[in-house]
Design a binder for these strands. Structure first.
Lengths: 254, 254
DNA sequence: ACGATCGTTGCGCATAGCGCAATAACCGAG
DNA sequence: CTCGGTTATTGCGCTATGCGCAACGATCGT
């Protein structure tokens, strides 16, 4: 809505790809160099970008500090983390915690697999919303109209042959997930990777987060992974309990 | 330099303190609500802020994703991390890695102590520049005029009786540090906490980062901590070697 | 030492962003 | 269920603000 701010913020993802000099930034923004300079200067004053010795700009450290604070404000993450670690110790696989934000599902925590083969994912990154087990849980809990609207709006990329193909199929899957109280992704995103996921609920019973265990076929079969379901559910319930108890809705005043 | 962007960016640290509603944001910015609304909307579109169910705004997940990417772009951090972990395994204390950015020294990596007593610090947060051992190393390597100018500009808060009291004392300390090639902070920031630090150098010999080991008096005395100096220096040198070898100055093209 | 490239500055014009005030959604209390 | 109070949202007219331009200056490579 605000042109200037819009442009300034567009610089950040651009710099996330790697350092860039003034000319490059101006060109990719489609503005004059003097304009880009002013925007970069303002970003610089706020520590959002940093100018390295060769004059090129990179993302600044204040950004990292802010993100760190943002994460510390996410109580679910703080509460959940030790549980994720324990679960990882018990099963050895990659463990994720995800939340819904606007129309995206994002990982907010991750404990890496103890097996040498890792999977690619990044904290803060949106997940494949139409196939990920955690996404199904979070969306399944949405009120009917929103769920429908969202399902309509989404794209359904066929990552693999088992990806959710379209809106109706997705809504059916969500109904199933809501009913059974857990979800899976069996090769719907990466051919050889399976996940089992369980919901974390707040005091009011609404799903506030979802956690999953993921492992590639080469380590355990889908059947073996499903064996872990009770453990995953128990862990998720433990987080739910702690979360509902400790943090109803309120927030500490500054 | 750009008013609108300036205001928009000022919202972020404000929200880092905790969620806030439109009125609060407008008031703290000193602008009309409609103005704050427009700014927040723009930030929202870029995923920098998120609007939770009670209509209040919090920091968004895109911020976290960007910060994550920013960290992955910091090659020193990537290269250094395994070394920090190994050092921590060997000595058990808290290990930090820091760089200089503009006029601030910031932690970019941290491995927590294995002892129950932890120290407070946060990745991305500026360190106490006049007393921290890592800061001394980074500033000591600055060209004479910049060093002098910076020393002049700084404040010299007396965190403890042993804090660096003023500019001249600081410059003397920096000279000493530069000559000996390592630095300490013996209770200059927190009465009971000591640090030893060593520099990481690039191919051209310039100091690009500094690492430190910190421990409270109650765990080891300052003398015992100094015993670790050779180990710290060896680790820092190992990082220097790898960094100079792998990443001269260049950068991968997108 | 010279030319090309890239960053920086000052300026006048037009637009983009501002505050205002009216409207609309929301919430709690009676 | 209705009624105040509170908070978010919209449209609008004014002017400050951010824009592109073009001239200048720094920097680098050869």
């Amino acid at each position: 809505m605000s042109q200037t701010v819009d442009r300034a913020l567009s610089i950040l993802p651009l710099l996330a790809e790697g350092p860039a000099d003034l000319g490059q930034v101006a060109e990719r923004l489609g503005v004059h160099k003097s304009t880009a300079l002013r925007l970069l200067r303002t970003l610089h004053e706020h520590g959002m970008v940093y100018r390295q010795s060769d004059q090129r700009y990179r993302l600044g450290a204040r950004l990292i500090a802010l993100a760190q604070e943002a994460m510390e404000n996410l109580d679910i993450r703080e509460i959940g983390h030790p549980h994720l670690v324990r679960l990882n110790e018990q099963c050895g696989h990659t463990v994720h915690l995800a939340v819904l934000e606007d129309d995206e599902v994002l990982y907010i925590d991750k404990v890496e697999s103890r097996y040498p083969v890792r999977m690619y994912s990044r904290i803060g990154k949106p997940v494949a919303i139409t196939v990920a087990a955690v996404a199904k849980l979070l969306l399944a809990d949405l009120p009917e109209p929103e769920r429908r609207a969202l399902a309509d709006k989404l794209d359904y990329p066929m990552y693999t042959a088992r990806s959710t193909p379209n809106g109706p199929a997705f809504l059916r899957e969500l109904d199933k997930v809501r009913e059974q109280g857990w979800a899976t992704d069996l090769g719907g995103h990466e051919e050889s990777i399976n996940c089992v996921a369980a919901p974390v609920r707040g005091a009011d019973g609404r799903v506030v987060a979802a956690m999953s265990v993921s492992a590639p076929n080469v380590v355990v079969t889908a059947e073996e992974l499903l064996t872990l379901l009770p453990l995953v559910r128990r862990t998720a319930d433990a987080i739910s309990g702690e979360y509902s108890g400790k943090t109803p809705v309120k927030e500490a005043t500054s």
